[in-house]
């Protein structure tokens, strides 16, 4: 059952070795193939007996923004939480298949999820600053990670990189709860940057923000792409089209013998341009043209 589903997916998904549909077209000018950060093979996540997401194969490339899109319940957030092992925190969750980070199995015995999360940061759907000062929000990560750095400096650079410095420089000791929603989200991005990660995962980071704040975060992502690999879950197709280099489209299908439990599947993964202009699967086309979802 599991296998047939995966097999059915494969023609639509990218070939495992060469990356997403490399043979069809290469819209961007990158001549050399980008370094692979995450290599995902036949990954599935289940909660108890319910398979939330099944049979995902995907490679995520260094310095790119990868967008995960699809209707709600398609498992894209669940999938994102596999990259930094946040699913470990849900007792009933089980991850199967393989997921490597720079060639090293993320789920191997002996891998420390705490170290994983130091390297792979995350920004959440709703801004979740700590109920502390702006300064303390940024300083928390470097402190707990035992980084031997000048905290004042880290706070300033992180806030600058998150394009928040000018707005908060005079009130670093004020509570983070006094900031607007958009500012809070940029603070959370600054907080993630402060621990000097390699990858930043973003789980619908703009879903609770207004269009102006959203635009600022999107600009910020473009700038951060210089130094970080970014994976973003979004329900906003325009956002995926605007910011991402590659896009993965997920959908839901009946996940077991019972019809009421639906399970997420990766339908198609390709350069963003291809996904939106020349999708390889009719379901992708239906979704991006707004016919369903």
């Amino acid at each position: 059952m599991e296998q047939t589903a995966a097999a059915r997916m494969r023609p639509a998904t990218a070939s495992q070795q060469t990356g997403p549909r490399a043979e069809t077209s290469q819209p961007r000018s990158s001549a050399a193939p980008a370094q692979v950060v995450f290599d995902v093979k036949d990954l599935s996540v289940s909660y108890g007996s319910h398979v939330a997401l099944g049979g995902v194969d995907m490679q995520i490339h260094k310095g790119e923004i990868t967008a995960l899109i699809g209707p709600s319940g398609c498992g894209k957030s669940t999938y994102l939480r596999c990259f930094n092992r946040m699913n470990d925190l849900i007792p009933s969750a089980r991850v199967q298949g393989s997921m490597t980070y720079h060639g090293e199995d993320l789920y191997a015995r002996g891998v420390d999820p705490v170290v994983v999360r130091q390297r792979i940061g995350m920004v959440f759907q709703k801004p979740n600053p700590f109920p502390k000062s702006i300064y303390d929000n940024i300083a928390f990560g470097p402190k707990v990670n035992g980084m031997k750095v000048d905290l004042d400096e880290v706070v300033e650079t992180s806030l600058r990189r998150a394009a928040l410095w000018d707005e908060v420089r005079s009130k670093l000791s004020a509570s983070a709860y006094g900031l607007s929603g958009g500012q809070q989200q940029r603070l959370c991005i600054a907080r993630a940057i402060a621990v000097n990660p390699d990858v930043i995962l973003m789980d619908e980071p703009c879903s609770s923000l207004d269009p102006i704040a959203t635009a600022r975060i999107e600009d910020l992502m473009r700038e951060l792409q210089e130094s970080y690999t970014i994976v973003i879950v979004t329900h906003n197709m325009q956002q995926a089209a605007r910011v991402s280099d590659r896009t993965a489209f997920f959908t839901t299908e009946v996940g077991g013998e019972t019809d009421d439990l639906r399970s997420g599947r990766l339908v198609e993964y390709d350069y963003t341009e291809n996904i939106f202009k020349n999708p390889g699967d009719s379901r992708t086309e239906d979704y991006v043209t707004g016919r369903f979802g």
Partner: peptide
């Protein structure tokens, strides 16, 4: 104390105890 506070701490690479002792208990 919202779950998001715990998630935020853990996602920064804090251990469970660091998150609990420095964020959850003070809150």
């Amino acid at each position: 104390v919202p779950r998001a506070i715990r998630d935020g701490g853990l996602a920064l690479g804090a251990t469970r105890w660091q998150t609990v002792s420095r964020q959850v208990i003070p809150a």
